[in-house]
Design a protein around this nucleic acid. Structure first.
Length: 255
DNA sequence: TCATTAATCGCAC
DNA sequence: GTGCGATTAATGA
């Protein structure tokens, strides 16, 4: 416990120094979808936001390792992250992606002792970190906050159940299209292209297929003028047709 | 520019 | 549908 506080103090110091480069304060944060931000008025009283630590990751850096003990919870302040689980043959299954304001590592929160997932920054990312202990205190004292978190968990469960169905019952082509729509919903577009740089392998890891299959589906879709690609950048030309192809099978997910 | 890495394609299973 | 290997394109030092 003593050690923990001294570590926390150290982190506060380093955070202060680094905040010259990027403002990490909740007050000026614009992630209104963040659970902390939307409950700030009540959380302020218990001083939760003062006990926040910040962590910055470079592109490609892993900040949650599978099997490591759970000590707290991460929120994305800025940047993009992929969350994955290593499967058979070391193949990774991307569980989900996270953007500004989203929570990472929540499944291990509470009773779990070790992370069952890993997380890697897709670009330079700034994270907010709250220790388990701090968060527990805030949850016990703030029913609204606890309720919001519960809703979040319920929602996540719903999504992951839908994903099981999509992976087990859809064809490769459908899964790839579904992945494209998911990425589009999650990260949106910039100048006509999906606003994330993902490798074909990462699309494959999310869709539950191989890199080659993704390439094959992509080039088929390109021929059909449904999408366009410039290197890593993928543009969706006809989102309605893509949606139609998925919804006909009644598998369209709103996750 | 050159070297490294990613994307693509063809082919066998 | 999957996996390997050769070729080509893109990226970055």
């Amino acid at each position: 416990m003593q050690l923990e506080t001294s570590i926390a103090r150290h982190k506060v110091l380093t955070t202060t120094r680094k905040s010259m480069l990027y403002n990490t304060s909740c007050d000026t944060c614009e992630n209104y979808n963040c659970l902390i931000k939307s409950n700030m008025s009540t959380l302020d009283d218990v001083g939760l936001i003062l006990k926040k630590n910040n962590l910055r990751c470079k592109k490609g850096q892993q900040f949650i390792i599978e099997g490591a003990p759970v000590n707290g919870l991460f929120f994305v302040l800025k940047g993009k992250v992929k969350v994955f689980r290593t499967g058979i043959n070391g193949r990774e299954q991307i569980v989900r992606f996270a953007r500004e304001g989203e929570i990472i590592g929540h499944r291990g929160f509470g009773t779990e002792e070790y992370y069952s997932i890993g997380a890697i920054a897709l670009e330079d990312t700034v994270l907010c970190y709250f220790s388990k202990h701090t968060l527990q205190e805030a949850l016990i004292n703030n029913p609204k906050f606890a309720y919001d978190l519960m809703l979040f968990y319920a929602n996540e469960l719903n999504k992951s159940e839908s994903k099981v169905k999509s992976i087990s019952q859809m064809t490769v082509r459908e899964r790839v299209i579904d992945t494209l729509l998911y990425i589009n919903r999650k990260f949106g577009t910039d100048k006509g292209f999906l606003d994330v740089n993902l490798s074909r392998k990462e699309y494959a890891d999310y869709a539950g297929t191989t890199e080659e299959q993704v390439i094959r589906v992509f080039s088929a879709l390109k021929k059909e003028k449904l999408i366009s690609a410039k290197g890593k950048k993928i543009g969706i030309n006809d989102i309605d047709l893509l949606k139609k192809e998925i919804s006909e099978h009644n598998f369209f997910l709103d996750s």
